[in-house]
Design a protein around this nucleic acid. Structure first.
Lengths: 192, 192
DNA sequence: CGGGCCTTTGACTGGTTTCAACTTCTGTGG
DNA sequence: CCACAGAAGTTGAAACCAGTCAAAGGCCCG
């Protein structure tokens, strides 16, 4: 159940077998089905969710009812409303499953106890945050400085499996354009 | 020289006087004049810079010679090419001073030693990263989901002093629009 | 098999960029 | 301290790109 989680953890911070046994007592496995909510807007987000298997997304819905996808998470990624998780404020994002998924949750309470008791966890968190920061920086840079077409190309080459698994209109939402525009762009690109 | 730095540090993680004395041995003060580079594209970024006084920006220049401003930093903020700093890769941003400034630098070497020796520093770094992550998340959200005008309004109310101190064409670059469009927007808004 | 969602395509609209000219501000050297 | 050059900001007109609205076809799921 926790294979991938500990594999990724060990890549960042090596753990002994005893560490793993201890850590497991703080982790909560969870299965979730396609279309099911993991987090609804307004609830405080009291977990981070590591994806062992499946696919999820976080997103907002604006006044006009338009979905704005903030993040996708496939196997090996972590998804959460980090702002809400860290501050305790109500979540600004919703999270739901795009496929039947298996998750490893770390509750806010577990998070705080681990920070106190396990220096390796703090190091892990710091590295997690670094990675999340760098990924978002890359995304922000491309959303500001690239044309729509360049953005799509960059996305496809960075995350080829997402192109396979995720519906096109959601990728459009993630990239910040309309499904129609994305469709037109794709047909223009294949014509070349 | 380090007043503001330790004030901000203490807000995140309380330090004893002895801590402060120890930490000071790892810090490097630096004065930099308006228009001077702190970091040039391609060099590895081996520092984070805390702004005691003044104003800086980080930015890229694309193939067409257009500047894309990624971040401004006024007093109390930290600026760096975090990607380059954390990974050791060459910097993708340039950093220069918009005003004569006084900085507190933490070199990469000092950073690594502090991580080993001072748990309070690791906690501080984690909180720094959280803050930077949350700020960038807010920015990404607004750059994807708000209209240009809404973006400008949000920026002005979030950072009113930047409107005062930073040239308009740089704010345009930060917001991802042309100086002409920003100028037109402003005159339209005051007419109301 | 049917209904609804997803994708594609078309025509139209509108906001932003681009290019260019002009004005205002700033800083630097004589 | 003034003059001038270059940068910054403003304004106008034209071109363009993406969004919107609408309709049709395809596909998946119940």
């Amino acid at each position: 159940m926790y294979e991938l989680f500990f594999q990724k953890f060990n890549e960042k911070v090596p753990l002994t077998k005893e560490d793993e046994v201890l850590f497991k007592t703080y982790l909560t496995p969870k299965k979730i089905r396609k279309k099911q909510y993991l987090l609804q807007e307004g609830d405080p987000c009291n977990f981070t969710a590591f994806v062992e298997k499946g696919a999820l997304r976080s997103y907002t819905i604006d006044e006009k009812g338009v979905e704005r996808i903030f993040q996708f998470a496939l196997e090996g990624w972590t998804i959460s409303d980090l702002y809400s998780f860290l501050t305790g404020e109500p979540a600004t994002y919703q999270i739901d499953a795009l496929e039947d998924s298996e998750l490893v949750l770390i509750s806010k309470q577990a998070h705080e106890e681990l920070l106190k008791k396990a220096p390796k966890y703090e190091t892990y968190m710091r590295l997690q945050l670094s990675g999340a920061y760098i990924a978002m920086q890359r995304r922000l840079t491309s959303s500001i400085s690239l044309s729509l077409e360049e953005r799509y190309v960059a996305f496809s080459s960075l995350y080829p499996e997402m192109i396979q698994r995720i519906p096109q209109h959601m990728i459009a939402s993630y990239l910040g354009l309309t499904p129609e525009t994305l469709s037109r762009m794709r047909s223009k690109m294949t014509r070349k």
